[in-house]
Design a protein around this nucleic acid. Structure first.
Lengths: 209, 209
DNA sequence: GAGTTACGCTACGACCTGTAGCGAAAGGCT
DNA sequence: AGCCTTTCGCTACAGGTCGTAGCGTAACTC
């Protein structure tokens, strides 16, 4: 979770887990109040009731701290079985959109992704703690649709992986773009169109082999 | 183009257009060398052979400067008639992906979008100088496909607008997400799948009315 | 108790921001 | 030509942030 190796030594004073949670909570609060660019390490330390040096013992910089602070929010995403592929898609898209509407994620997600274009460790951290967690929803949704008979069983595993990747990038990308770039609401109507596009297009993609 | 009102007064010393181009060029060079976060106004001024105060007379801050510096790159996008909707889509997607591969845009685009979540004027600037220019390609591609008979003629203009918006967010969002978040190549195979998904799904979306 | 590690605190140099003031340069106007 | 206006480069500056170092103290293990 933290950046520096917590040094599994059993000797010495242990790190305060209360400080951990207080710092992450303070980081989210600072994101809400100040946004990404005006958030400072000193401010977070003050909100958390913690010395600034304590932050730097755990996280190397602002980027990694914010990734950890925001990552837990993505654990809220779930994929309940609503009976049809289209209903499952619409539900998870609305969940994801609601998450992006929160001011913490809104200002932080794009910023850390932008930073990650020049920071490979940060990119890996984002992938492990945010991206992969979302991707599991795509895999689960596909398997469930296959069990229902809405989608054909797997033939070429390589093609299946490629299609999973595609669907993930399309859903996540479209929602992020709609919410943050176009800055227009992800409402029921838009989601219905998106899911119709996906369900209708999946057959054509499967035909590629 | 510039942030401050250039004061259309014809009296006084005119602003140096050479300085304008030198600054924007220096900004792109600095983005390549330093990336978004380490780019400073002083560094750009030095590269451009211009005083730092000259930058602040034209742009209020780093965000607006970078938007203008990157915006011109999006003018390169074109939509030649390749004979079919799918071919047109694939071509423009590959063009867009090539643009996102450039280090200037890669590091800058997401950063300014992240900043725009808390800065309405910046968001409007991005929309006018970057987003709308891309959106025209979607409108042109749809009209051309309708002329070919690949898509039905317009019936409900509201639904047409909504579908245009959807397609735009799906294409741009998916490419950005693939290139910057998933950090995997936008190659011919991926593009073929994406365009197949779109062409196959458009019929289902049109059926919604 | 001895050893080890984390903590809070202070101080610090380095850097970036954005502005102010100055004299000089480059145009338009009469 | 001379005057007016605006921009230019330059320097200096206050304010804020970064990330680190050093210190004494607190907490936990053996």
């Amino acid at each position: 979770m933290c950046s520096s190796t917590p040094r599994n030594s059993r000797t010495g004073r242990p790190r305060s887990t209360e400080a951990d949670t207080a710092i992450l909570e303070a980081t989210r609060a600072a994101l809400v109040d100040l946004g990404w660019s005006k958030l400072t390490m000193g401010d977070v330390a003050g909100r958390a009731g913690v010395a600034k040096t304590t932050l730097y013992r755990r996280w190397a910089n602002k980027n990694e701290l914010v990734v950890d602070a925001v990552a837990v929010l993505f654990d809220e995403l779930e994929l309940p079985d609503l009976g049809s592929l289209q209903a499952d898609i619409e539900h998870v898209v609305l969940q994801f959109a609601a998450l992006l509407e929160r001011p913490e994620t809104k200002t932080a997600l794009m910023a850390v992704v932008a930073e990650s274009t020049r920071d490979a460790p940060l990119r890996e951290r984002i992938r492990a703690s945010i991206v992969d967690r979302q991707k599991r929803l795509v895999l689960a949704g596909r398997r469930r649709a296959q069990q229902r008979g809405e989608l054909p069983a797997d033939r070429d595993p390589v093609a299946v992986d490629a299609t999973d990747d595609l669907i993930f990038d399309v859903i996540a990308g479209a929602v992020v773009h709609r919410a943050l770039v176009s800055a227009e609401p992800v409402d029921g109507e838009w989601v219905a169109r998106l899911s119709a596009l996906l369900v209708g297009g999946l057959g054509a993609v499967a035909a590629l082999g």
